[in-house]
Design a protein around this nucleic acid. Structure first.
Length: 291
DNA sequence: AGAATCTCTCGGCCGC
DNA sequence: TGCGGCCGAGAGATTC
């Protein structure tokens, strides 16, 4: 019974790739648990995940407290008085909170630990089964605009106009799917939401960017915003913050039109949804609706 | 020079 | 049951 439950959980969990709505949900979850709490200890477990800093520098945050928890696109930013962490969950990174360190260690033996932060009320575990997650650590005298990680991130769909997108797209000759996954211009969309946005916009993901019209660019922005907003409201797709004490489940997967629905009927026209490859990425499409 | 494409990371999962 | 191939975000390397 326990094994069955575990296997079921893993299956759902693997669908989850934190994109903007999932990261926003996690941001709120972290805020709820550690905002204004003092850091008592910090321990880096996976040394390779730390970039732009040394392990020794990390210890400087001990005694400081979390003053702000921000999000930029898919990046989480944890501020203290004098430092900030930029964390990226990649595909399977997650945060789990426990009341005690002993409890945390006992209940997460099978997980790969990235970082452990003890605060005065909670123990924060940053874990990632695939060890892809990254941590960048900076002193506050490195501003956002000069930050080597953040300066590479483009605008979120909320801050872009269809015209701006159109100008960029017409200057390129790649396919629209690859373009929308390029975080350096439009950030926050990942594989799930790009497929959903292109379905709503009735655009074939294989289309070359300079064939996209201004009307289609407007639709891409419009639907990116509405889909991301709705997903944030539903706390993202599938499970993205697992905790034995406080598990939270996203509800947006109920609204997915094409992602993960290969072999099923299109909800608009009844055509069978296909899963194809576009630039090496699994891509879901209704070839009748998307031209 | 600038843009596009390839390669690599990792461990669970899937199909043979 | 064992094993090779696949998956995927994003950085860095390489090619065009």
């Amino acid at each position: 019974m326990v094994l069955f439950f575990f296997k079921t959980y893993i299956k759902i969990y693997n669908l989850s790739m934190p994109e903007l709505p999932e990261v926003e949900s996690i941001r709120r979850y972290i805020e709820k648990n550690i905002l204004n709490r003092r850091i008592l200890d910090i321990k880096l477990i996976n040394k390779k995940s730390l970039r732009n800093s040394s392990e020794i520098e990390l210890n400087n945050v001990v005694g400081q407290s979390f003053t702000n928890i921000n999000r930029i696109a898919k990046h989480l930013i944890l501020h203290t008085q004098d430092y900030y962490f930029i964390m990226h969950l990649r595909m399977e990174g997650k945060f789990i909170f426990f009341d005690t360190l002993q409890d945390a260690m006992n209940k997460t033996k099978s997980l790969h630990h990235i970082l452990i932060i003890q605060t005065e009320n909670k123990v924060l575990l940053f874990v990632d089964t695939r060890k892809f997650a990254t941590i960048d650590f900076f002193k506050k005298d490195v501003s956002y605009s000069a930050n080597p990680v953040l300066m590479k991130i483009g605008k979120e769909p909320f801050d872009l106009t269809g015209k701006e997108l159109y100008v960029w797209l017409t200057s390129k000759r790649t396919n629209i799917k690859t373009a929308l996954l390029d975080q350096s211009f439009i950030s926050g969309l990942g594989n799930i939401y790009v497929d959903e946005v292109l379905f709503k916009s009735k655009i074939d993901p294989r289309r070359i960017t300079n064939s996209i019209t201004i009307e289609e660019s407007n639709n891409i922005i419009k639907f990116s915003i509405s889909i991301l907003r709705k997903s944030i409201e539903m706390k993202g797709s599938s499970i993205r913050t697992y905790s034995p004490n406080d598990s939270e489940t996203g509800g947006y997967q109920k609204y997915l039109n094409v992602y993960g629905r290969q072999g099923e009927e299109c909800l608009i026209c009844g055509n069978i949804i296909k899963k194809i490859k576009v630039a090496g990425r699994g891509t879901h499409i209704c070839e009748n609706c998307q031209k």
